[in-house]
Design a protein around this nucleic acid. Sequence first.
DNA 1: GAACTTTTTAAACACTGTTCAGTTTATCCA
DNA 2: TGGATAAACTGAACAGTGTTTAAAAAGTTC
Lengths: 202, 202
Amino acid sequence: MKKRKKHAENIRQQILEAAMQVYTDRGIEKTSIRNIVEIIGYSPAAVYFYFKNKAEIMFALHIKGFTELKRRFEVLHSVKNPLERLKAMGRAYIQFSFDYPALYDLMFVSEYPMKHLMEGNEPLWRQGEATFDELRQTVAGCIRQGYFPGHDVEALSFLIWSMVHGMVSLHNSGRSEKAQIATPQDIVMLSYGEFERMMDRL
Amino acid sequence: MKKRKKHAENIRQQILEAAMQVYTDRGIEKTSIRNIVEIIGYSPAAVYFYFKNKAEIMFALHIKGFTELKRRFEVLHSVKNPLERLKAMGRAYIQFSFDYPALYDLMFVSEYPMKHLMEGNEPLWRQGEATFDELRQTVAGCIRQGYFPGHDVEALSFLIWSMVHGMVSLHNSGRSEKAQIATPQDIVMLSYGEFERMMDRL
DNA sequence: GAACTTTTTAAACACTGTTCAGTTTATCCA
DNA sequence: TGGATAAACTGAACAGTGTTTAAAAAGTTC
C-alpha cells in the first residue's frame, strides 16, 4: 500500500517542522532530539526510524534554507542587466541572512550538514554548488558584456561570494560590533555599498 | 605567600596547554573537560577552581591565537608602503588560517569565546578590536597616500576583513570545493590574488 | 482470527558540563 | 612542633546529550 509511504512521509515532515521550530526559536543548543519529539508527542527513539541520525535532520533543514534562498534569487532573473542582477543578488543574500540568521548558519557555517555529506558515499554539496553556479552564471554574463575585464570567472565568483559571506557571518557571530558607525547591520550594508561601487569601477 | 599564586598560575597554564592539545589534535567535539584533565591527571571538578566554566577556557585559548596572529602582523611593520603592507597582511591572515584552522575557527567563527564575553559585565571583544584596528590603521595609511580615493576607512576596512575571512571560513568549513580549479587552498589564493589586483585599481 | 510486517517505545549506554559535600594538602601563628 | 585556618582537590551525583537494542504495540494480509 502507498498509504504507508504517505504516512511515513507525513511523520518525516512533522519531525522536520518541529526541528525547524525548535532550531529557529530556541537556537542550536536547545535543538535536541528530545526537545524535537516532545512537540509531536513521540519518543526520542522514533526519529531513528525516519532519519539515520541528527546530522541527517540538520541536513534536511539546511536544504529548506536553500529552497528559500533559491526562490529569492529566481525573482531576480527579471533584472536583465547582469551587473545590476549581481548587485541585487548580493543584497538578497544579505537580506536572507538577516531574516534567517540561524538557518544561514546551518547552510554556510555549521559543521552538521557537511558532516552528513561526509558520511554518505559521495560528498557532493549539491545545494551549495547550485547556488554558486547561479552566481557564476551571472558573473559570466557580466564578463560577456564587457564588465570586469581581465578577471577570471571562477576566482571572481568565489571572491564575491566570500565577500558577502564574510560580512554576513562576522555580523552573525557578533564580531562586527567594533566599527563605530551606527548599528552592526548598518556596517554590513555600508560595506556592501562600498563593494558595489568597487564593482562598478572594476 | 606568592608561591601559592605561582602554583595556581602554573596549573592554569597546564590546563590551557592540555586544552589546546586536545582541541588542535582531536577537534572541538572531543574537547571535553574530562578529556582535558585526563592529560594532566586531575579530576574534572578541579578545573572549576581555576576557570569559571568551559567558555572561559575556550576564551583563553582564543587569546593565544590572537597573540600569534598579532606576532605575524608585527613583522609586516617593516613594509613601508601601506598598500603593500595591506596585501601582505591579507596573505599573513590567510596563511595563519591554513596553519591553525581549528584556532582560527575559535577566534572568528565559534560562539564559545563570544559567549564568555556576554557573560562578563562588559562585552568588549578587545582582541578582535585590536586586530581590526591594525587593519584600519593600514587602510587609513593607504588613503593618506592617495590610494582608494572616495572610499570610507571604516567601511572599506570591514570590507577587506570580510573578504579574507569569507574565503578562509568557507574553505575551512569544507564549502569551497565547488570551484573546479585545482585544490581548495588554491581557489583561496587565486581569489585573493584577484582581490589584490582589484585593490591596485581602486 | 492467526501470521506477519511496520511502527513505536522503554530502558539503557556512554557521553557531556557543572555543582556540592566532603577530604586532603599546604600555610600560618603560637 | 602542634593545631587552626585556608586552599586545593576529589567522588559522586544531577541533568542533559545522541544513539542502540529488545520488546511491545499497531496495522495489514490471508
